[in-house]
Design a binder for these strands. Structure first.
Lengths: 215, 215
DNA sequence: TATGGCTTTCTACATCTGTAGAAGGCGGGT
DNA sequence: ACCCGCCTTCTACAGATGTAGAAAGCCATA
């Protein structure tokens, strides 16, 4: 999975971020983790920022490859099958790919105070595009917006199970029970955002919030 | 907002975590941020773990107070109003309370590799209970599970806007547009998880994933 | 006033971290 | 064989960080 020096180092870095957080990402720690001589990481990534950027890039690349290798089908005609497909991906990301998922969230948080990372980390752009396309094909109103909402919610399900309360309460990752649970959750989401019966337009919603704004 | 020494210090710590990440949480940095003499934080929280725990506890307390001061109404009979109420809270958490929200996510990620934090950080337990109660009142099937899904999704919407792509694409926090956007998103969620027309039971979902498990 | 316990402040120090450059080694071309 | 450029490894060092203890100040009570 990691053959050349760069890949070995960045993979080790990703693993470190996943299990120790951004704080554990250190030149020397990466050296140790990768089983290479002290100073190696420092030689390849002279500054810490370079190291972080490499991690972010690596994550993006891995996700890209993962997606191309076979994402969910997203068949509009069969929402339940689409939900099951998405659930399968989510389950994989929280079992086999848990480390990568955690690292990704850590990087997202990091990007909050490091704008330059945001360019590289186009995480989820592909998913969003896919979601929008699917909703558009399903004839949903405002597929752009709804697609974004949908992806955000699915991501929420993932985050909850990987770092939130779901990590304790939900069925363990990698099991059929987990996939089943995720499937019903995602199916509900798909139904919610595909139905043209989406009565609340932005306009009517605006009216509804009148009495609720208290900031 | 912060009168006694502990509160001053932990508030400064929360602010630091929000804007610099966990890595910025340092005894000396907290001293500086709080405008107190060097060594103060070190005296109050002898170890770094104690400092982190204090931050987590402070976040939990603030959330608790926030919730008691007036959470959304969650009126079952009027889902749109409930959605608007939730949207208002979300909007506040991503504008005025953005720092706290970011700090919370950072702590959640931190709790991933520090189990002792998990006990303190019962974040969202109240929300989950409320969601379950609401869904139960609405006659939704399996309100426990659906409630958890619902909260996870709502949290996903929040995370997306605070740290994800939504931070760039969605309407700016604190504006009516944002509240409106969130309202339609949440309303769709409520509809999805309250409808008894929730055809896919766990059992049928299990059948649906048969062809999709490839891990 | 003196005393004893606090809270607060200052200082010390071993480690860790970021960063840079020197030293060493290896292989390809002349 | 020799040289040159590259990759790798080692070492140095300034500054940050975690942690502990000493010093100083404050206040109430005897």
């Amino acid at each position: 999975m990691a053959t050349d020096r760069f890949a070995v180092l960045t993979d080790a870095a990703v693993a470190l971020v996943a299990e120790l957080g951004m704080r554990g990402l250190t030149h020397r720690a990466v050296d140790a983790r990768a089983g290479l001589a002290q100073g190696t990481t420092s030689a390849y990534f002279r500054t810490r920022k370079a190291l972080i950027e490499a991690v972010v890039r690596r994550l993006a690349d891995l996700d890209q490859a993962d997606l191309e290798a076979g994402g969910p089908s997203l068949d509009v005609t069969d929402p339940d099958a689409a939900a099951a497909g998405i659930a399968a991906v989510l389950d994989r990301w929280m079992s086999t790919g848990r480390a990568r998922t955690l690292a990704r969230y850590a990087c997202l948080l990091e990007a909050t105070h490091h704008p330059e990372l945001r360019t590289i980390l186009a995480y989820g752009d592909a998913s969003r595009a896919q979601a929008r396309a699917m909703l558009a094909a399903a004839g949903a109103p405002d597929p752009e917006r709804s697609g974004d909402h949908l992806v955000a919610c699915i991501d929420g399900l993932l985050f909850d199970r990987v770092a939130g309360a779901g990590a304790r309460t939900a069925p363990p990752p990698g099991t059929p029970e987990n996939r089943a649970d995720l499937t019903v959750a995602v199916a509900a989401l798909l139904r919610a955002y595909t139905t043209a019966a989406n009565a609340s337009s932005t306009a009517s919603a605006k009216a509804a919030i009148e009495g609720n704004s208290r900031s």
